[in-house]
Every structure is written in structure tokens, then in C-alpha cells.
Amino acid sequence: MDGAEGRALPVDLDREYSRRNFLKTAAWATAAISAAGIGGFGVANRYAEAQTAPYVTYQGLGDAAILQFAYLLEQLEGTFYAIGADSGLFTGNALAQIAELRDHEFAHADAIASTLGTLGAAVPAVPAFTFPTDATASAAAFLGYAATLEPVGIGAYQGAAPALVSKDILAAALSIHAAECQHWDAIKILNGVSPPNNVALEEALPLGTVQAAVAPFGITG
């Protein structure tokens, strides 16, 4: 996190990041972080620190803010898989899966954007994402990053779901969550994990952990 230490990373977020140490985000060391925009979530984040259930960290944000954050996550994932699909690293079944994941993530983003429109809420501008320089160094490197990214999406949806107010939006979020879990399984298959379905209970992540995990890519909301 060399490039990030000199910046105004919120203390609560930083502590959450260190404490959980759930993701190997140190690998994204050269990525830039901007604290702009984090403040809106920070209030709920601090409120939630004393709590235990991850969903508490999303409560009070409102469906629109949660969806706006989810939209950026989907755009990030879709862009990541698009890079992978175009990298020339994958062929055959692996390429078919990477391209499918790309399409899923963008389909999720489109569905979320549509819902935001229905809510009368703004669709966030997609930032210029920053990816680690070695992400496409090899198929193994790319899949390694994919294996750390997918649990973030899973954890975000699973964590946020109980905080959603609209039952219709909840139903959509649960479906997308299930798709993300299938993505992770597919990545584990490509990584040679056997059996790939090696989790009995998926893990929800607190908002701060998700924010810290995706901040190095350029998501600052």
C-alpha cells in the first residue's frame, strides 16, 4: 500500500482493512487510492464497528446507495474479465468461462443501472479502473486475482442483502449473489481446486472490508 499511505485513507476503514486481512490486497500495491467519496459510507461504517453482523454495516445507507456501490463492483469485475478475455491468455473452455463471466458482470451492472433509474437515483460514472501490472502476466496470475476478487463480490451482496428495504431489489440481489458464488466456483475449477465447492457457508463481508478491497482498483464510493 505504498502509494496509499500518504493519502487520506479513513482511519476506520484502514483499521478494518488491517484487522480483517481477508484479501491479499497488498498485491495491488501500486494502485492508487483516493479517499474522495468514502465519507458517505464512513458514518455507517463507524456506527457498525461495535456490531458483529456484517449486514449492520450496510444498514441506513438506503437501497440506492447500496446499488450504486454494487454497480461499480460489477463494472470493475466486468472490466477485469474483459481484460482477461482479450488478453490472449485463455483458450477453449477457459476462455468461454472468462467471457461468460464478463457478460454476467455487465448484465448485472445493466440490471442495477436500470433499477437505479427506476428509483430516480443516479448511475455512478465508471472510474478508470486500476489493475495490477502483473494481472495479465500469465493465466495463473489472472486467475489468482480473480480468486481474490470473487469473494469480495459475494461478501458484498451477502452482507448488504439484509439491509435492503425493497423486497424486489432484495430478490434481484439474492439472484446476483448466487451467480457470483457460481463465478467463484468456476474460477476455483479453472484453478484446479478439487472439489471446487469447498465452502459450506459463504462469508458476508462488512462494508469497510469491501471498500478496502476495491479501493486499490479505483472504486472510491
Partner: peptide
């Protein structure tokens, strides 16, 4: 339920 369902979803793909 979300924690459970995620695992079921993985089972489908496996």
C-alpha cells in the same frame, strides 16, 4: 439463508 444459498449455488456449478 444467504450463506447457505451461496454454497448451493457453488454446488450447481461444480
Amino acid at each position: 439463508a444467504g450463506a447457505i444459498n451461496g454454497a448451493e449455488a457453488e454446488n450447481v456449478t461444480a
